[in-house]
Design a binder for these strands. Structure first.
Lengths: 100, 100
DNA sequence: TTTATAATTAGCTAATTGTCTAATTGTTGT
DNA sequence: ACAACAATTAGACAATTAGCTAATTATAAA
């Protein structure tokens, strides 16, 4: 969990996650969106991987990165909920109902 | 928003926010929960203040810190929502209703 | 089998960060 | 006025970080 927040502390890494939100992308394709060298991007990917926020899939010459949304979700909502933010409605005085 | 995530990247600072969640506390009282020097704690408070996550109120010799929950909430949920996490139910096919 | 391409590793630097002790500021009580 | 206490600022240091270029690895294409 600490690694997740460490990973999220850098704006470039947050933007990488946002990019990946729309679907998997190769390291190179991600890099095109940023004005930094490939090795620098590679280091960012390593941090995101360490935090388990992304997953790498080898495809020929390329490496395709996938966002692990559930890990991000667990960290973010887990922390938020420890502050009563983003409450689970099932424990409150309101009930959820499917609209007609 | 970047300052918020920077602030959240340190475990000590996250724990300070958690402590403040139950109510305002003086710098000294917060410090008692941590095994670091007062100046170090002071530096952490400065980072949290810079991120607007806490607010300082002077009271005699002491400084009372208050959590600014709405700022934390906006940053956390704002970011989460950009990933479709923690969706606003009013825009989905479910409706909220007060229980009898 | 070379050659080209994608990505990472190695090695370096400058800047930032978390920590400390010592000194300073501000406030209260004697 | 002075001593005690709370907190911050000043200044130093080790560790980490984000960035770079050059070199390496791995795969695909000619």
């Amino acid at each position: 969990m600490n690694t997740v927040f460490k990973a999220l502390s850098d704006p470039t890494r947050r933007r990488v996650l946002q990019l990946l939100q729309t679907g998997p992308l190769s390291a190179g394709d991600i890099g095109k969106h940023f004005d930094v060298s490939a090795p620098t991007m590679s280091a960012h990917f390593a941090v995101l991987k360490e935090a388990d926020l992304i997953h790498a899939e080898k495809a020929g010459k390329s490496v395709i990165y996938h966002l692990k949304l559930s890990v991000l979700e667990d960290a973010l909502l887990g922390f938020a909920q420890s502050f009563g933010i983003g409450e689970d409605t099932s424990t409150s005085s309101v009930k959820l109902e499917i609209k007609p």
